[in-house]
Write a protein that binds this DNA or RNA. Structure first.
Length: 883
DNA sequence: ACACGGACTTGGGACTACCACG
DNA sequence: CGTGGTAGTCCCAAGTCCGTGT
């Protein structure tokens, strides 16, 4: 064992060296290309994700300030004591949006797609599209649509056109934008086609193989899924390339070698990208379709392969795959059987340093107490949190004490938290922090380098010959669990994770990472290429859950998956109209289950609500669409629904929305005869909902609506609201669109503690500038009349300046004031809205990249370094790309 | 039909690095 | 040159969704 490990090590190191180059995208220039081929593949397959979509703007929750407040979390400052604060606030800004669903034209929804057909469909669509071109409201978010309908009322939204149909919706404070421009709906109808229905998918049955374990080198047992045979070494190429990084070797057979592949691939790829050109509808179809559905044949192959697995298989597999389909079909290699990689090399994970006792004594009933290092460690975790709001929560304290007592032992002097005084430890900690802060820049730098050196080898993995960043190679240090909201387990001790808790997943031919802690060994070694994790351990707080180590977001693997997510959302565009028509029809279904599904789908589509899985009692009490309680939705006649509930992360969602009468009535009916805490949708859960959605579109799940609505909204707003203007104005336009999306998705943040002070300071500065402006104007008047200028504030006489110069100054000052006022507005506006989350997770980066290209905005203005890396797959999109 | 195990995405806040300012 | 505001990172919790075994 060890031996082997060693070898690896070397390898890796070498590689590392190569790369020093820090960032840079791994993929080579064309970068995306290579990948592309893969991505497609994936689509087809399995799992994954679909994601979300969203819609209209109207809906936005009102958050205003309140929202923030609500979150209980936060704030460290203790001063305020309030307990957990949560929601109190809230008042929304009122908005209501009205939404209506627009009924739209086309009839049927269901359409399930006929399979094949891709080509056809495409063409069809295209035609359609062109004709109608614009409109289709479908593309737009519901809300938007509605709004339009409602027309006047909604000020807010922005969105969509008024197409004829729209339903009405309401209002909300936002101004209306120009929605009008939008076209109408035309398109929808056709869409259906496509898809194959469903399922195809892939399940890879094989996956489960299980595990036989054998002891392996590290002593840990290794499991293998299949009978594997011998190991072959990893293909040389893999290694080689590894060093470099770039090309990923395709899984293909060696022969294909990257080059060929690329070449061949490219065209394909191109095609995809090109789709952009094509009308939306077409595009989507094209791309998506092919990708998604693997031909049966393929699947089979894959499966078999996978099963067989083991090295031999691997190789052979690959080959075969390639041959069979890969290129032509576009399927992703992985697609069929769920294989995610062929070779995987990494160095495992790094552990936090062992606890270093500080010896500072806390007081119990006023007297210093001796604690063992273990006891002291836990006491310190608590002491450090002295100034946080957590320590105001009884639940937290109780859980902490329960766990700490286990370590103190039954007869320890410390029996009650009440008599504990952690101040000495807290102060010691503050001093340590201060010391650190006071270190010179050089010292800090040295420290940083030292750390880097220690961690470097863990930062990278080589997957299929490509060097990729590892996301979280640091094992979580022990600490006190900080749950969000009113989590029943907050304050519990999260114990230290040891190597014997960790399962490593690595290529069969790769050396097993050396266990970094002397005398210990890994729990298990696996060689499962159907998953992407490099290591995992079970969560010490909730033993049923796992903590995984994955590749970073910038990796090809994640990039592919991300792209598939957006492609799926784009596919929804083709189905959305039919889906909306269908659920609208079911609002009045006699079948209660159907009716609930229809209403729930409507809410998910219109409000971008999350699915809402069931939760255990030992988790914070939060809800999503399927788990909404009667008390969370209040119908206000004639047709307004007031939502108020805690969603993911205990973030409050408050919104008033105008809905279609049928929905309004349905909600009233669902509520009747129930208590506040009862489920609004008693006949529904996420699996039923998603099963239904899958019948409407292959791979469709609730989250896809969020992605769809978020991306379509951005695309729509950008195209509608970008006027000429300078760079700064364009950026403002983008951020405005981004903000709309964040509001729709209810992405909030707490108001910074210094927000109000900052606003005041801005006001002061503006006032000051205004004073200067007045003075300049006075000066100008005098200068024009030839009078000497008045003395300045400092009492000194000013030099006389000619009127032109004064005018210039006035213009400058005026511009400065305007800019500051704009900045101030934006700041106030965004104080509770977080733009980052949607940018990272919901907005198809190709929309942004294409927009930047079209409007000559440097992409760096919109994406920071991490985002650029994460979205490297989207960089070469055609400027005409539209979601 | 379900409960449950499992894998992967999404999310806000703490922490840091960094940059403009007085 | 300290500072404070921020933008960017890190951290890890909390969701979604799939497959499975019962």
């Amino acid at each position: 064992m060890t031996v082997e490990a060693r070898e690896d090590k070397n390898m890796m190191e070498d590689m590392d060296d190569d790369d020093d180059a820090p960032l840079v995208f791994k993929r080579s220039g064309s970068s995306s290309k290579p990948k592309q081929s893969e991505p497609e593949n994936k689509l087809s397959s399995q799992k994954h994700n679909a994601q979300v979509g969203r819609q209209s703007s109207d809906v936005r929750p009102q958050n205003g300030t309140n929202a923030n407040a609500q979150k209980g979390k936060s704030v460290t400052s203790s001063s305020s004591m309030k307990p957990p604060v949560r929601p109190s606030l809230v008042s929304p800004k009122s908005s209501n949006s009205s939404v209506k669903a627009s009924p739209i034209k086309s009839p049927d929804v269901n359409s399930k797609p006929s399979t094949s057909v891709v080509g056809e469909s495409k063409s069809v669509k295209s035609t359609i599209k062109e004709e109608n071109s614009e409109d289709s409201e479908d593309d737009k978010p519901l809300s938007a649509r509605q709004v339009a309908g409602s027309s006047k009322n909604n000020p807010n939204q922005t969105n969509k056109p008024n197409a004829p149909n729209l339903g009405k919706k309401s209002n909300v404070p936002k101004p209306e934008d120009s929605d009008d421009e939008i076209p109408l709906s035309a398109k929808f109808q056709g869409k259906s086609n496509a898809g194959a229905s469903t399922s195809r998918s892939s399940h890879s049955e094989e996956k489960k193989p299980l595990v036989a374990r054998k002891p392996d080198k590290n002593g840990s047992a290794s499991t293998e899924r299949k009978p594997s045979t011998v190991l072959q070494k990893r293909p040389a190429d893999g290694v080689a390339s590894a060093g470099q990084s770039n090309l990923k070797k395709p899984k293909l057979s060696d022969s294909l070698a990257s080059k060929d592949k690329k070449a061949s691939v490219k065209p394909e790829v191109k095609a995809e990208d090109d789709e952009d050109l094509v009308p939306l509808s077409q595009r989507t179809k094209k791309s998506t379709t092919p990708e998604k559905k693997p031909s049966p044949a393929l699947k089979t192959n894959n499966k078999t392969n996978s099963k067989t697995n083991s090295k031999t298989n691997k190789k052979s597999k690959q080959v075969s795959k390639d041959n069979n389909y890969s290129k032509s079909s576009k399927l992703p290699p992985s697609s069929g059987d769920g294989q995610k990689w062929t070779t995987l090399v990494h160095n495992g994970v790094i552990f936090p340093p062992p606890y270093k006792p500080h010896g500072v004594k806390m007081l119990y009933k006023g007297k210093p107490v001796n604690l063992t290092p273990e006891q002291e460690e836990v006491a310190t975790m608590y002491a450090v949190m002295l100034e946080t709001d957590y320590l105001k929560k009884p639940q937290f304290k109780e859980n902490f004490m329960t766990d700490w007592k286990k370590i103190l032992g039954k007869n320890h002097v410390i029996q009650s938290l009440e008599h504990c005084d952690f101040t000495p430890i807290y102060e010691w900690h503050q001093r340590e922090k201060e010391k650190k802060k006071q270190m010179s820049t050089d010292e800090k730098k040295a420290l940083k380098e030292e750390k880097l050196k220690l961690e470097e080898k863990y930062m990278w993995a080589v997957l299929d010959g490509v060097r990729e960043k590892v996301g979280n190679f640091r094992v979580e240090p022990p600490g006190l669990f900080r749950g969000r909201g009113e989590h029943p387990k907050m304050g519990k001790l999260k114990r230290r994770i040891r190597p014997s808790d960790i399962t490593i997943n690595i290529g069969r031919d790769a050396p097993i990472p050396e266990c970094p802690i002397e005398g210990e060994r890994w729990k298990e070694i696996r060689h499962d290429n159907t998953v992407t994790w490099l290591a995992y351990w079970s969560d010490p707080i909730n033993g049923k859950e796992f903590k995984y180590v994955f590749l970073a977001a910038s990796s090809t693997l994640k990039g592919q998956s991300d792209k598939e997510k957006y492609e799926k959302a784009r596919l929804l565009k083709d189905y959305i109209q039919g889906i909306r028509t269908a659920y609208t029809r079911d609002f009045v279904s006699k079948d209660p289950a159907k009716k609930q599904i229809a209403v729930a789908t409507y809410l998910i589509d219109k409000l971008a609500l999350r699915a809402g899985n069931e939760k255990d009692d030992d988790e914070a009490d939060t809800v999503g669409c399927c788990t909404l309680k009667v008390e969370n939705v209040e119908p206000v006649p004639p047709n307004i629904l007031k939502f108020d509930f805690l969603g993911k992360d205990s973030i409050r969602y408050q919104n008033e929305v105008e809905v279609e009468t049928a929905v309004f009535k349905a909600i009233q009916q669902f509520r009747s005869g129930k208590k506040g805490g009862d489920d609004l949708f008693d006949k529904l859960d996420t699996s039923k909902l998603n099963a239904h959605l899958k019948e409407l579109m292959p791979g469709l799940t609730a989250k896809v609506f969020r992605t769809y609505n978020a991306s379509i909204t951005l695309d729509d707003k950008l195209s509608r609201e970008t006027k000429g203007g300078d760079l700064a104005e364009k950026v403002v336009t983008y951020n405005h669109a981004n903000k709309e999306v964040a509001i729709i998705c209810n992405h909030q943040r707490t108001v910074s503690k210094t927000h109000s002070a900052q606003m005041l300071r801005l006001d002061e500065k503006i006032d000051e500038l205004k004073g200067v402006l007045e003075e300049l104007k006075t000066d100008l008047g005098r200068a024009r009349k030839g009078k000497p200028l008045l003395a300045g504030a400092d009492g000194k006489a000013k030099r006389n300046i000619n009127p032109e110069a004064l005018e210039r100054k006035i213009a400058q000052t005026t511009a400065k004031i305007e800019k500051m006022e704009r900045d101030k507005e934006t700041k106030e506006d965004l104080k509770t809205v977080a733009l980052g989350t949607s940018k990272i997770n919901y907005l198809d980066p190709r929309i942004t990249v294409a927009w930047c290209k079209r409007h000559e905005v440097p992409i760096e203005k919109m994406f920071n370094k991490s985002l650029l890396e994460k979205f490297s797959w989207a960089m070469d999109v055609d400027p005409s790309f539209r979601f």
